[in-house]
């Protein structure tokens, strides 16, 4: 990345696209934190929080992925890595949402914690790719 934002450069992502991607980046780690707290406290409300965070993250992951795919299709622009990362995130997030629909301890357990950890890594990776994507420099 260049140190300074060059004159005439545009951002790679539309601002709304960036905002959409910001949700999974924030919400999946939030779910992970809630899961860890639940496993440490057995206080079920933390698992409920995690379930909502995952559900919200999934919605915005889906929207982010859709936007990315449209962007690729329309401009034949880059973003395939971003699309792949968001698609993987959506799959793991969906499985995790189902996992969190179990009752009591089974809503998290080892599987839920692992899924939240993987989702968090994928979300941060997707964010990294998205926010470091080079924009076009207009002459």
């Amino acid at each position: 990345m260049p140190a300074a934002f060059p004159r005439g450069a545009t951002t790679a992502l539309h601002p709304i696209h960036s905002i959409l991607i910001a949700f999974p980046v924030a919400l999946f780690p939030g779910a992970l934190a809630a899961d860890v707290t639940y496993l440490n406290s057995s206080e079920i409300q933390w698992s409920n929080f995690a379930a909502w965070l995952i559900a919200g993250a999934l919605v915005f992951t889906g929207l982010s992925l859709a936007w990315t795919l449209v962007r690729i299709a329309m401009r034949r622009a880059g973003g395939r890595w971003l699309a792949a990362m968001l698609a993987g995130l959506f799959v793991f997030g969906l499985v995790n949402a189902f996992q969190h629909s179990h009752d009591g301890w089974s809503s998290v357990g080892t599987t839920g914690l692992a899924l939240s950890l993987i989702s968090t890594v994928l979300a941060l990776a997707a964010g990294w790719i998205a926010y470091t994507m080079p924009g076009k420099v207009r002459p």
Binding site: A51, W52, A55, H100, S101
Partner: peptide
């Protein structure tokens, strides 16, 4: 309804 599951 405390979580998404309860709604569904």
């Amino acid at each position: 309804k405390l979580r998404p599951k309860d709604v569904i």
